[in-house]
Protein backbone atom coordinates (compact mmCIF):
# COMPACT_ATOMS: atom_id res chain seq x y z
CA UNK A 1 0.00 0.00 0.00
CA UNK A 2 1.19 3.48 -0.69
CA UNK A 3 0.90 5.94 2.15
CA UNK A 4 1.97 9.16 0.45
CA UNK A 5 0.63 9.99 -3.00
CA UNK A 6 1.44 13.44 -4.31
CA UNK A 7 0.70 14.54 -7.85
CA UNK A 8 2.03 17.69 -9.47
CA UNK A 9 2.61 19.27 -6.09
CA UNK A 10 3.88 22.83 -6.07
CA UNK A 11 4.38 25.45 -3.41
CA UNK A 12 5.24 29.01 -4.36
CA UNK A 13 6.39 31.83 -2.14
CA UNK A 14 5.74 34.90 -4.24
CA UNK A 15 7.28 34.22 -7.60
CA UNK A 16 9.67 31.63 -6.17
CA UNK A 17 8.73 27.99 -6.49
CA UNK A 18 10.06 26.26 -3.36
CA UNK A 19 8.51 22.98 -4.54
CA UNK A 20 8.00 22.67 -8.26
CA UNK A 21 5.62 20.11 -9.69
CA UNK A 22 6.80 17.03 -7.84
CA UNK A 23 5.33 13.55 -7.97
CA UNK A 24 5.74 11.42 -4.87
CA UNK A 25 4.75 7.90 -4.07
CA UNK A 26 5.90 6.38 -0.81
CA UNK A 27 5.13 2.79 0.11
CA UNK A 28 4.11 1.78 3.63
CA UNK A 29 6.60 0.15 5.94
CA UNK A 30 9.74 1.68 4.50
CA UNK A 31 12.11 4.54 5.12
CA UNK A 32 11.91 7.04 2.31
CA UNK A 33 14.96 9.31 2.17
CA UNK A 34 14.67 12.82 0.81
CA UNK A 35 18.06 14.27 -0.08
CA UNK A 36 18.98 17.64 -1.41
CA UNK A 37 21.28 20.62 -0.92
CA UNK A 38 20.35 23.67 1.19
CA UNK A 39 17.27 25.42 -0.07
CA UNK A 40 16.31 22.47 -2.28
CA UNK A 41 12.77 22.36 -0.89
CA UNK A 42 13.01 19.46 1.57
CA UNK A 43 11.47 21.23 4.54
CA UNK A 44 8.83 22.83 2.37
CA UNK A 45 7.89 19.38 1.09
CA UNK A 46 7.63 18.13 4.69
CA UNK A 47 5.40 21.07 5.56
CA UNK A 48 3.19 20.21 2.59
CA UNK A 49 3.01 16.54 3.49
CA UNK A 50 2.23 17.27 7.14
CA UNK A 51 -0.51 19.77 6.12
CA UNK A 52 1.26 22.67 7.83
CA UNK A 53 1.11 24.60 4.57
CA UNK A 54 -1.27 23.95 1.72
CA UNK A 55 0.00 23.38 -1.80
CA UNK A 56 -0.32 26.11 -4.42
CA UNK A 57 -1.12 23.39 -6.94
CA UNK A 58 -1.53 19.66 -7.13
CA UNK A 59 -3.21 16.90 -5.18
CA UNK A 60 -2.04 15.02 -2.13
CA UNK A 61 -3.25 11.93 -0.32
CA UNK A 62 -1.69 10.84 2.95
CA UNK A 63 -2.65 7.44 4.41
CA UNK A 64 -5.54 7.39 1.98
CA UNK A 65 -6.92 10.73 3.21
CA UNK A 66 -7.20 13.83 1.04
CA UNK A 67 -4.79 16.36 2.56
CA UNK A 68 -6.58 19.41 1.27
CA UNK A 69 -10.03 18.38 2.49
CA UNK A 70 -9.18 16.64 5.77
CA UNK A 71 -5.85 17.88 7.12
CA UNK A 72 -6.82 17.32 10.77
CA UNK A 73 -7.68 13.65 10.16
CA UNK A 74 -4.18 13.19 8.74
CA UNK A 75 -2.49 14.98 11.61
CA UNK A 76 -4.11 12.55 14.03
CA UNK A 77 -2.19 9.72 12.40
CA UNK A 78 1.24 11.15 11.79
CA UNK A 79 4.21 12.25 13.84
CA UNK A 80 6.42 15.19 12.89
CA UNK A 81 9.87 16.27 13.97
CA UNK A 82 10.50 19.53 12.19
CA UNK A 83 13.91 20.87 11.33
CA UNK A 84 13.69 23.79 13.74
CA UNK A 85 14.01 23.03 17.45
CA UNK A 86 10.80 22.99 19.44
CA UNK A 87 10.59 22.81 23.19
CA UNK A 88 8.97 24.27 26.29
CA UNK A 89 11.90 26.11 27.88
CA UNK A 90 10.76 25.89 31.49
CA UNK A 91 9.68 22.25 31.59
CA UNK A 92 12.00 19.45 32.63
CA UNK A 93 12.81 16.69 30.18
CA UNK A 94 10.44 14.22 31.81
CA UNK A 95 7.67 16.75 32.21
CA UNK A 96 7.89 17.73 28.57
CA UNK A 97 7.59 14.10 27.48
CA UNK A 98 4.64 13.56 29.80
CA UNK A 99 2.83 16.71 28.73
CA UNK A 100 3.40 15.89 25.09
CA UNK A 101 1.78 12.51 25.64
CA UNK A 102 -1.11 14.24 27.39
CA UNK A 103 -1.53 16.58 24.42
CA UNK A 104 -1.90 13.51 22.24
CA UNK A 105 -4.54 12.13 24.58
CA UNK A 106 -2.36 9.28 25.83
CA UNK A 107 -3.50 8.08 29.25
CA UNK A 108 -1.47 9.06 32.32
CA UNK A 109 -0.28 5.53 33.04
CA UNK A 110 0.68 4.89 29.46
CA UNK A 111 2.55 8.21 29.41
CA UNK A 112 4.61 7.20 32.44
CA UNK A 113 5.44 3.84 30.90
CA UNK A 114 6.44 5.24 27.52
CA UNK A 115 8.41 8.01 29.11
CA UNK A 116 10.60 5.56 31.05
CA UNK A 117 11.30 3.53 27.93
CA UNK A 118 12.15 6.59 25.86
CA UNK A 119 14.34 8.14 28.55
CA UNK A 120 16.38 4.96 28.43
CA UNK A 121 16.40 4.52 24.64
CA UNK A 122 17.48 8.10 24.04
CA UNK A 123 20.03 8.24 26.89
CA UNK A 124 18.12 10.90 28.76
CA UNK A 125 18.08 9.31 32.22
CA UNK A 126 20.85 11.53 33.59
CA UNK A 127 19.19 14.72 32.41
CA UNK A 128 15.58 13.81 33.08
CA UNK A 129 15.21 16.52 35.77
CA UNK A 130 16.94 19.22 33.75
CA UNK A 131 14.95 22.02 32.20
CA UNK A 132 14.87 22.14 28.42
CA UNK A 133 16.41 25.61 28.36
CA UNK A 134 19.47 24.28 30.19
CA UNK A 135 20.16 21.42 27.76
CA UNK A 136 22.85 21.32 25.11
CA UNK A 137 21.72 21.53 21.50
CA UNK A 138 22.19 17.81 20.86
CA UNK A 139 20.42 16.86 24.08
CA UNK A 140 17.51 19.08 23.16
CA UNK A 141 17.30 17.49 19.75
CA UNK A 142 17.24 14.05 21.34
CA UNK A 143 14.37 15.11 23.59
CA UNK A 144 12.52 16.50 20.59
CA UNK A 145 12.82 13.25 18.65
CA UNK A 146 12.07 11.06 21.69
CA UNK A 147 8.98 13.12 22.49
CA UNK A 148 7.42 12.25 19.17
CA UNK A 149 7.35 8.59 20.18
CA UNK A 150 5.08 9.35 23.13
CA UNK A 151 2.13 8.87 20.80
CA UNK A 152 1.16 6.23 18.27
CA UNK A 153 1.40 6.98 14.59
CA UNK A 154 1.42 5.29 11.23
CA UNK A 155 3.72 7.68 9.45
CA UNK A 156 6.59 9.72 10.83
CA UNK A 157 8.24 12.73 9.23
CA UNK A 158 11.77 13.54 10.32
CA UNK A 159 13.46 16.68 9.02
CA UNK A 160 17.20 16.26 9.56
CA UNK A 161 16.77 14.68 13.00
CA UNK A 162 20.44 13.86 13.51
CA UNK A 163 21.80 17.40 13.11
CA UNK A 164 23.74 18.19 16.27
CA UNK A 165 23.97 14.58 17.45
CA UNK A 166 27.34 12.98 18.15
CA UNK A 167 28.24 9.87 16.12
CA UNK A 168 27.14 7.42 18.79
CA UNK A 169 23.82 9.16 19.44
CA UNK A 170 23.34 9.34 15.70
CA UNK A 171 23.89 5.63 15.23
CA UNK A 172 21.64 4.84 18.19
CA UNK A 173 18.85 6.91 16.71
CA UNK A 174 19.19 5.27 13.30
CA UNK A 175 19.01 1.82 14.88
CA UNK A 176 16.04 2.87 16.97
CA UNK A 177 14.27 4.02 13.81
CA UNK A 178 15.14 0.81 11.97
CA UNK A 179 13.50 -1.16 14.77
CA UNK A 180 10.39 0.99 14.62
CA UNK A 181 10.11 0.37 10.89
CA UNK A 182 10.18 -3.37 11.57
CA UNK A 183 7.04 -2.91 13.65
CA UNK A 184 5.24 -1.30 10.72
CA UNK A 185 6.06 2.40 10.92
CA UNK A 186 6.71 4.32 7.70
CA UNK A 187 9.31 7.09 7.85
CA UNK A 188 9.86 10.06 5.58
CA UNK A 189 13.41 11.19 6.28
CA UNK A 190 15.27 14.24 5.03
CA UNK A 191 19.00 14.63 5.38
CA UNK A 192 22.12 15.87 3.64
CA UNK A 193 24.06 13.08 5.23
CA UNK A 194 24.52 10.50 2.55
CA UNK A 195 26.01 7.73 4.62
CA UNK A 196 23.05 8.04 6.95
CA UNK A 197 20.64 7.73 4.03
CA UNK A 198 22.51 4.72 2.74
CA UNK A 199 22.34 3.04 6.16
CA UNK A 200 18.68 3.74 6.79
CA UNK A 201 16.68 4.27 3.63
CA UNK A 202 14.92 1.79 1.38
CA UNK A 203 14.30 4.40 -1.26
CA UNK A 204 15.90 7.74 -1.91
CA UNK A 205 14.71 10.79 -3.80
CA UNK A 206 17.17 13.52 -4.73
CA UNK A 207 15.64 16.98 -4.92
CA UNK A 208 17.18 20.25 -6.05
CA UNK A 209 15.62 23.65 -6.72
CA UNK A 210 12.20 22.29 -5.89
CA UNK A 211 12.31 19.43 -8.40
CA UNK A 212 12.81 15.73 -7.81
CA UNK A 213 15.75 14.65 -9.95
CA UNK A 214 15.68 10.93 -9.34
CA UNK A 215 14.08 8.29 -7.10
CA UNK A 216 15.49 4.82 -6.51
CA UNK A 217 16.90 2.43 -3.93
CA UNK A 218 20.44 3.21 -2.77
CA UNK A 219 21.77 0.11 -4.57
CA UNK A 220 20.02 0.91 -7.80
CA UNK A 221 21.31 4.48 -7.64
CA UNK A 222 24.83 3.16 -7.27
CA UNK A 223 24.35 0.86 -10.25
CA UNK A 224 22.90 3.63 -12.33
CA UNK A 225 25.37 6.34 -11.50
CA UNK A 226 28.17 4.30 -10.01
CA UNK A 227 30.03 3.76 -13.23
CA UNK A 228 31.51 7.18 -12.87
CA UNK A 229 34.54 7.32 -10.63
CA UNK A 230 36.59 10.15 -9.35
CA UNK A 231 40.36 10.15 -9.74
CA UNK A 232 42.41 12.62 -7.76
CA UNK A 233 46.02 13.37 -8.60
CA UNK A 234 48.24 15.63 -6.49
CA UNK A 235 51.16 17.13 -8.39
CA UNK A 236 54.46 17.93 -6.78
CA UNK A 237 54.37 21.47 -8.14
CA UNK A 238 52.05 23.76 -10.06
CA UNK A 239 51.64 22.80 -13.69
CA UNK A 240 49.06 25.02 -15.39
CA UNK A 241 49.51 23.33 -18.77
CA UNK A 242 48.35 20.02 -17.37
CA UNK A 243 44.67 20.71 -17.98
CA UNK A 244 45.10 21.37 -21.66
CA UNK A 245 47.23 18.26 -21.96
CA UNK A 246 44.67 16.09 -20.19
CA UNK A 247 41.61 17.51 -21.84
CA UNK A 248 42.65 15.68 -25.00
CA UNK A 249 41.58 12.45 -23.34
CA UNK A 250 38.05 11.55 -24.45
CA UNK A 251 35.17 10.71 -22.08
CA UNK A 252 36.29 12.57 -19.01
CA UNK A 253 35.92 15.88 -17.19
CA UNK A 254 39.07 17.42 -15.78
CA UNK A 255 39.34 20.07 -13.06
CA UNK A 256 42.51 21.63 -11.72
CA UNK A 257 42.05 23.30 -8.35
CA UNK A 258 44.77 25.41 -6.74
CA UNK A 259 47.17 24.35 -9.48
CA UNK A 260 48.31 21.08 -7.93
CA UNK A 261 45.21 18.92 -7.52
CA UNK A 262 43.67 17.39 -10.60
CA UNK A 263 40.21 15.86 -10.31
CA UNK A 264 38.94 13.66 -13.10
CA UNK A 265 35.40 12.35 -13.40
CA UNK A 266 34.91 9.51 -15.83
CA UNK A 267 32.89 6.41 -16.42
CA UNK A 268 35.93 4.74 -18.05
CA UNK A 269 38.18 5.37 -15.10
CA UNK A 270 40.65 2.53 -15.76
CA UNK A 271 41.33 3.52 -19.36
CA UNK A 272 41.44 7.18 -18.51
CA UNK A 273 43.87 6.56 -15.69
CA UNK A 274 46.31 4.78 -17.99
CA UNK A 275 46.21 7.63 -20.47
CA UNK A 276 46.66 10.21 -17.74
CA UNK A 277 49.74 8.47 -16.41
CA UNK A 278 51.14 8.18 -19.90
CA UNK A 279 50.68 11.88 -20.61
CA UNK A 280 52.15 12.89 -17.28
CA UNK A 281 55.26 10.74 -17.74
CA UNK A 282 55.75 11.91 -21.35
CA UNK A 283 55.78 15.47 -20.06
CA UNK A 284 57.90 14.64 -17.04
CA UNK A 285 55.32 15.90 -14.56
CA UNK A 286 55.90 14.44 -11.13
CA UNK A 287 53.06 13.08 -8.98
CA UNK A 288 52.93 13.28 -5.21
CA UNK A 289 49.84 11.19 -4.64
CA UNK A 290 47.11 9.47 -6.62
CA UNK A 291 43.75 8.08 -5.54
CA UNK A 292 40.58 6.73 -7.09
CA UNK A 293 37.58 7.53 -4.94
CA UNK A 294 35.18 4.60 -4.67
CA UNK A 295 31.63 5.36 -5.66
CA UNK A 296 29.43 6.28 -2.80
CA UNK A 297 26.12 8.00 -2.47
CA UNK A 298 27.86 11.28 -1.86
CA UNK A 299 29.46 11.19 -5.30
CA UNK A 300 26.12 10.30 -6.84
CA UNK A 301 24.42 13.10 -4.99
CA UNK A 302 27.03 15.61 -6.12
CA UNK A 303 26.84 14.36 -9.67
CA UNK A 304 23.06 14.46 -9.88
CA UNK A 305 22.93 17.95 -8.43
CA UNK A 306 25.83 19.13 -10.60
CA UNK A 307 24.25 17.76 -13.77
CA UNK A 308 20.99 19.44 -12.86
CA UNK A 309 22.76 22.77 -12.40
CA UNK A 310 24.58 22.50 -15.72
CA UNK A 311 21.38 21.51 -17.52
CA UNK A 312 19.73 24.71 -16.34
Amino acid sequence: MSCIEGKNLSKSYGSMKAVDDIVLSVKSGQVFGFLGPNGAGKSTTIKLLTTLVSPSEGSLTILGIDAIKHPLAIRHKIGVVLQQPSYEPTLTVEKSLEKYGMMWNVSKNECKKRMEVLLRDFDLIDIRKKRNEDLSIGQRRRVQVAREFMHDMELLFLDEPTVGLDPSARRKLLDFLKNKVKTGLTIFYTTHNLSEAEYLCDEIAIIDKGRILTVDSPDALKKRFGKEKTIKIHLLEKQPIVVSLLSRIPECVVDLDNGTTITIHSEQSELVLLQVLKILSENKIEIEDLSAVPTNLEEIFLKVVRDNASNN
Partner: peptide, 18 residues
Protein backbone atom coordinates in the same frame (compact mmCIF):
# COMPACT_ATOMS: atom_id res chain seq x y z
CA UNK B 1 5.15 34.55 21.67
CA UNK B 2 7.07 31.73 23.35
CA UNK B 3 5.39 29.12 21.19
CA UNK B 4 6.53 30.91 18.08
CA UNK B 5 10.00 31.57 19.36
CA UNK B 6 10.60 28.05 20.58
CA UNK B 7 8.94 26.25 17.68
CA UNK B 8 5.98 24.95 19.65
CA UNK B 9 3.40 26.77 17.56
CA UNK B 10 4.38 24.82 14.46
CA UNK B 11 4.73 21.63 16.45
CA UNK B 12 1.23 21.97 17.88
CA UNK B 13 -0.19 22.87 14.48
CA UNK B 14 1.35 19.74 12.99
CA UNK B 15 -0.39 17.70 15.69
CA UNK B 16 -4.04 16.87 16.34
CA UNK B 17 -5.12 20.51 16.73
CA UNK B 18 -6.52 23.33 14.62
Amino acid sequence: WNDRRHGMFEQIMSGPFT
